[in-house]
Every structure is written in C-alpha cells, then in structure tokens.
C-alpha cells in the first residue's frame, strides 16, 4: 500500500522499523523535532539532536530507499523555561537550510502555560520570516481542547499567516472541527490509549470533507506502532472505502501539504543525502 508517514520519531525506532516501513510501501517519512522521553540537560543536547535529524536519520532511511525529512523546533514539553528554549531556538538557523528540513515543528503547547505560548508564538514568527510551513502539536488528553483553542486564538493574530501552510496535529472528535473550520490542515494520530484509534479516525474521515486531513502514527519511544497508518488503510478497506479514497488520505493528502515545503521531493534525484553519507 503506497503511503507517506508524515509524523514519526524515528530517532527512537530501530533500523528494523525502517525495513518494515519500506516493505509496507512507505514512500517518505517526516520527523518533527520533539521530546525524547526525558528532558535534555542543556541546549547542546539539541545541537546533537538536530544533527541526528538532519544528517544521521536521512542516511539511515536512505539505506531502505525511503526519503527522510524533518521539522525543527524546541518541543513544548521543554519550552516552559523560556531562557533555555530561546537558546535552543538560536541553533535553528544553523540547520534550517539543510536539504531535508521541511519547516518549523512540532511546536505547540503541553500544559497550556504562558511561557509555552510565548515560545510557540516566537516559533511561528521564525516560520513566517522564512515563509516555511508549520506543524503544530496539540496537548494530550484533558489539555487538548484548551490548548487547541489557545493556539487558534494566537494564530489568528498573525495576519500574514497562510492557513494552508499550517497543520494542526493530534486532532480528535472534539477538536477537528475547530481546526478545519478555520482553514487549517488537521492531522489524526493513530496512537494507543491516547489520541485516535484507526476506526475513530475513519469515522472522522467519513463525517468530514477530508481534503485537509492526514493520518500519522507519531511512533516514538513509547508504546506505539510504526505501521499504524498502513493498518488504518487496511481498516478503511474492510469498511468498503475505495482504493482511490485510501490512497487519497494515505498518500495524496500528505503529499499535497508537504509539497508546499521547498525541500519535499519524493524522487530523491536531487537530494543531497545519500545512503553512504
């Protein structure tokens, strides 16, 4: 099944997972910068992390014929200390022009604090200054609704923002309409226990127009499934969705959004990253 994994934290996954994704038909992997499951002790930890995202992971993926792209930022879980966060953000210009960087993400909120919101807005400005797309993380569980509303209110203050170039991720039934109604893209994350199950994501697809929705696994260091997207495609087939409808949500939609990123190329012909780098 041809598909794109638009949100996976491959730094936390094994090389076997790359092989599994390739065998399942994965045509591209996109990796937002995020929390590693623990707080880094210094901004220098992020320098190494950004190198891993822009150099090592593309090379690891290339060995299985999969283009690997990334988004850069300091994640909201580590953005509560604004001094620390700004020091990390000062590293972004050194990496932002690397050939596999898509834009700024996954920025957002975690506990919906004033400091997190300030750092979120500074990231949005970085993206606007460079005319780059933005990938936004929405908070977990009981914090999701409030965080989504706070960020939508904040984004409305950026008059030069193109909403087509912003995807707001991890939507569920109580936030998807807030996001789509304001003209943004929405990501549905297939993640055990929290976020969406495959069948709930398909329910959302069946009850919405769907041209600005994508599916992702957000597989990471926690209990998560790197094959969640393609398994959801299989569930769609069981629920009598056509092959064209499945390909639209698994491949065409993410390709359409990501093609707004100047560095997103699927053929790999003119990308500088090689399997031998």
């Amino acid at each position: 099944m041809k598909y794109i994994e638009p949100h996976a934290h491959m730094v936390s996954r094994t090389t076997d997972d790359y092989q599994t994704l390739a065998l399942a038909g994965c045509e591209a992997i996109c990796e937002p910068a995020f929390w590693a499951g623990f707080d880094r002790s210094s901004p220098k930890g992020f320098y190494d992390y950004f190198r891993q995202l822009t150099e090592y992971e593309p090379a690891r993926a290339a060995k299985f014929g999969i283009p690997h792209f990334c988004w850069l930022c300091i994640n909201p879980k580590e953005a509560e200390d604004p001094v620390f966060a700004r020091e990390v953000m000062s590293l972004i210009p050194e990496f932002i022009d690397q050939p596999s960087v898509l834009g700024i993400g996954e920025i957002g909120l975690n506990k919906n604090t004033r400091n997190e919101l300030a750092i979120f807005e500074e990231h949005v400005q970085i993206a606007l200054d460079r005319d780059l797309p933005i990938l936004i993380h929405t908070p977990h569980l009981e914090d999701k609704l409030k965080g989504t509303r706070l960020m939508l209110d904040s984004l409305a203050n950026f008059s030069s923002l193109h909403r087509d170039k912003v995807i707001i991720d991890h939507v569920e039934e109580h936030t998807v309409d807030l996001v789509l109604d304001q003209g943004y893209w929405a990501g549905m994350t297939l993640y055990p226990e929290s976020k969406c199950t495959p069948n709930r994501a398909i329910d959302i697809l069946e009850t919405h127009e769907g041209s600005k929705l994508w599916l992702n696994s957000a597989c990471d260091w926690g209990v998560s499934d790197p094959l969640a997207v393609v398994k959801c495609g299989f569930e769609m087939k069981k629920r009598q969705h056509s092959a064209e409808a499945i390909e639209k949500i698994l491949f065409d939609n993410p390709k359409r959004f990501l093609s707004q990123c100047p560095n997103f190329k699927l053929d790999g012909a003119d990308r500088k990253v090689s399997a031998n780098s």
């Binding site: 506990k111 919906n112 004033r114 914090d143 999701k144 609704l145 409030k146 509303r149 706070l150 109580h174």
Partner: peptide
C-alpha cells in the same frame, strides 16, 4: 477536558 480559557501561570 479543561474548559478554562486563560493560559496557566505555570
């Protein structure tokens, strides 16, 4: 869900 509307202080 949390229905409050103001950012948390911390």
């Amino acid at each position: 869900s949390d229905f409050s509307t103001e950012p948390a202080a911390t």
